[in-house]
Design a protein around this nucleic acid. Sequence first.
DNA 1: GCCGTTTTCGGCCCGACTGTTTTCAGTCG
Length: 570
Amino acid sequence: MINRELSRIFEDLADMEDIEGNRWESLAYRRVANSISLLAIDVLDLYHSKQLRKIEGVGSSIEKKIMEYIETGKISKREDLKEKYNIDFESLRKIQGLGPKRIAILHLSLGIKNLDDLVEAIRNDQISKVPGFGPKSQDALKKSIKFYKSSGADRIPLATCYDDIQEFLSKLRTSGKFTRLELAGSARRLRDTVGDIDLLCSSDDPSAAGDYFTGLGEVKNVIAKGETKISVLLSLGLNCDLRIIDSNSFGAALQYFTGSKEHNIRLRAMAIDGGMKLNEYGLFKGNDSLASLTEEDVYSKLGLELVPPELRENMGEVEAALQRRLPKIVGFEEIQGDYHTHTDATDGHSTFDEMVEAGKKLKYKFMAITDHSKSLKVANGMDEKRFQARNRKIDGYNETTDSIRILKGVELEILKDGSLDLPNRLLNEMDVVIGALHQQISDHMKTNTLRLIKAIRSGMLTTIAHPTGRLLGTRDAYRIDFDAVFEACEENDVALEINGFPTRSDLPYDLVKRAKSYKISFTLGSDAHSTNQLKYLWFATAIARRGWLESKNVINANPYASKGLARQIN
DNA sequence: GCCGTTTTCGGCCCGACTGTTTTCAGTCG
């Protein structure tokens, strides 16, 4: 996958154009760097299918640059600028407080090219003597470098920190220092990964509230502290911004700080077109405030339906809201059970009884037990004999209770040649057959795609498990022609899984939205390997919401769900 | 360099905070 590399290259170009004073080119490059970094699909595949222009912000000039990069490994414009600015922007830009301009000043005055040079210059007390810098700047840079080196990855899966965030929120709420406190930013939009935590509050005594906040035990370092904005580093390794807001403009502020940036830019441009101005204090016409108390007011005065936070990505939601055609996205409370769980019969850590009890406690109407098939040896995958015994056990259990129905399931290996890991006579007994690629993945798109399509056409699968195979921060999506796979799913009544396991989050939301344009159903699964991981079903639901799915698209939200076979409802 | 329910040209979001400044530029979100 070349996305990360390309995204870095355009950031690099943006930095150099900034120094050159070409503000708008810089803006264009930065936009493209951002939209490429959000893509789950390989830009290389978009190149092959001649769809580069479909990437947000890619016009003719940037399209040419991407093609040049793929065909020659270089972009001449960048090579030219690199002659002039031989600087490692990538590492230097990660230091808080260093932007392109200040990096350029340090480069011109001290010859600083990279992080090592910067550390050396600080050690020699050279920075504080550069015009525009001073002792405070030097000290701040020294601190930033220290924090950069001690911190790990910049974004972490939402599901791995969401409990911590909620706990932190509830501690703040019960402190009595705030009249209102809300989560904003990408965590409120339920993006699959978060880079920092944005909080909004109002208080009768803002200054005392701010002091309370910076004095918390969870706060490791205070980065900035003003009257309305405080920025800190939390001990759980995330930055946290707290904005202190007048309660009269809470709705406008909540809208503003929930983002996304791209969504807000669209809204503010709309405001301008209507002779208005939108900022975190409200929607204004001249000096008159038109809306500020609630988010709904702001959207309404702009002529829009209230857009759910999960959809605010500038991916068509503004147009839909304008035409009052926003989807009624599936509700968390509509999800009646889990389509993907494991037990200690294979690689899980909880027993069958423990998992079933936990499902019952969660008031699930159904739960599919989908242990691995025999070829996945590392997970102690089960053969036909073991599955038959397991199926009899499930039948026996279902006789004893009406409160939950346990579905006979399997996460089935799709073998290298696209054939299936277990015989049809066994698969016909199953309620849920989730076909999965785990082993012997090819670098060739065609090979992977044909392998999947052959399995889909077998007539035995109900669902494709974690379709892209990506692991957040570890492994990119497999190279697959997703449109061809979606088409095959549509033709053969096979559903797509949305896997809520934190490092998977697969399908990613943008591909969910793309798949929705086909007549495909979706199953949500936690992929829980122990009872305490069943909560990941909630995050699968979050992805479904971000992918614009309605309850009719999601089998788990459907009265047929407990009958098992996904193909029954298509 | 991109983009279009006014526009294929002329715009391009907006404000807080910081440090180094005598009024503002750079950075950040």
